[in-house]
Amino acid sequence: MTDVQQELAPAPPLKLAIRGVGKSFAQGKAVVHALDQIDLDVAEGEFVCLVGPSGCGKSTLLSIIAGLETPDRGEVLADGQPVRGPGRDRVVMFQEHALFPWKDVLGNVEFGLRFKPNLDAKARREVARFYLRMVGLEAFAHAWVHELSGGMRQRVALARCLAPNPRVLLMDEPFAALDAMTRERLYGDLQQIWSARRKTIVLVTHNMREALTLGDRIVLMTPRPGRIHAEHVSGLPRPRDINAPHLAERAAELTAELRRALGPDEEATR
């Protein structure tokens, strides 16, 4: 097998164990408990969605799993090994596409491959093209970022995250800024890529229907302090359609449950 073929084979998914994680921030003189005593297990190849209102610490938890932030208490284990910092086995896709304007589309997808010493320039190019094809943008390899639509930019960002062949994909509200039509098309793409590549995915969202469309398991979180309120196994057959009536019904039930947990003062999720 050549380096490229080896590189393109899906990396085995990773198992995550979050043990007693807590994190506080100083905000002026007040202390904000972003996360308090979080315990969560994510199995190999599982698609877990974290859902909650703003301030429930879901994005902070994602950053801690990514190793971009360190917890005050507790630890995150990736396949049993404590996470000590960022690593390309756990790549984050952000809400903003954050594509680099000085590189064309292909250059952006290649970016993460630079840090893999076994790939030369030609191999990087080949790998990047493979993932561009996967998100259906091969024809735009040499376009500049500002020439793409919002949905295309987010596809390129997805390809850039997939290219280093991570074992966990961490997604921080990656579809929140897109229009509904584009978003629904991307749900289809993501489900297809996930079933083809079997990655462990943790997705943060405040959109309950999005979580039910994508996730195997839905984790409901409540704020002040950020805690896990409940977990629900989706059990819906795939592929799922966000506009299916039974899905909307489940979403309404879970939203109602979350709203009860939040109490009258808290703003409900969308």
Binding site: V92, A98, F100
Partner: peptide
């Protein structure tokens, strides 16, 4: 330079020197 660029580089496994050379410098061009 938008801080998110630096986060992207770090999550992809770029070290400090690579982040400066490949992200911070070109972004400030």
């Amino acid at each position: 330079v938008p801080p998110i660029y630096v986060r992207v580089a770090r999550t992809m496994g770029a070290g400090g020197a690579a982040t400066w050379l490949r992200v911070v410098l070109p972004a400030s061009l």
